[in-house]
Design a protein around this nucleic acid. Structure first.
Lengths: 111, 111
DNA sequence: GGAAATTGCTAAATAAAACAAGCTTTTCTA
DNA sequence: TAGAAAAGCTTGTTTTATTTAGCAATTTCC
């Protein structure tokens, strides 16, 4: 798996940007950018990753995957798995009623 | 917009978990979880957010949005599908995932 | 009722991220 | 080719995240 540093460096070079140009655009110091590209930073903030994903026009998920935080295309797999999993459940009447109540709460919270 | 802290607290209470249970499950100290829920932390690492999204069965994007890092996307809400067990409902992928987890908790509590 | 857990929380300590200054190397140009 | 300018990088410092230890308020259990 391509490291986060390599991914960032490749992205930057692809756009022919210097560290100081990226600093100018994102507010992230060139010193820190260098450390990121050389894998000196283990757990950057989501904030930093988002800014870099934006300027390099890559998906945030790509950077999260490169940083080893999520599995690549994990979302799709999880959705399929969960769909199948819930469909396969044999629900008692009581369980189904509980789930429907819970769903109501859920939707009330999320809008 | 609901704050990250409120989002995390709601999610945890919805599953009837204590701070120490979440600590046990994620490795994140209960003290830090408390600070997160009370909005004392401005820029948590992507790692932390991912772990919490996983245990609470919410989309990482939801937490990122609550943290003000990204804009909330409508995509997840628009993805609908039919489910056999709750045939009357049109569940989003996220909702079904939440229901599945809730069902696990339910069955664990009742034996 | 009261000891004993259990809960959420805070302050202090530690670890790590992120920045500022400046050094080294490469690139450009006269 | 020298020397300036721009490049990436390193070191040291500041800031912030994260943990440890432990308190005060419930809750549980005898």
């Amino acid at each position: 798996m391509r490291s986060l540093g390599q991914t960032l460096k490749d992205s930057r070079e692809l756009m022919s940007l210097t560290l100081r140009q990226v600093e100018e655009a994102t507010g992230i110091s060139n010193a820190y950018l260098s450390q990121l590209e050389n894998n000196k930073i283990k757990k950057p903030s989501a904030n930093i990753l988002y800014k870099l994903a934006s300027i390099y026009n890559v998906e945030l998920n790509n950077l999260l995957a490169a940083a080893g935080i999520i599995q690549e295309s994990q979302d799709a797999k999880n959705k399929l798995f969960n769909n199948a999993a819930l469909s396969a459940q044999q629900l008692s009447a009581e369980e189904e009623r509980a789930l429907l109540t819970y769903l109501k709460v859920l939707r009330q919270q999320n809008g």
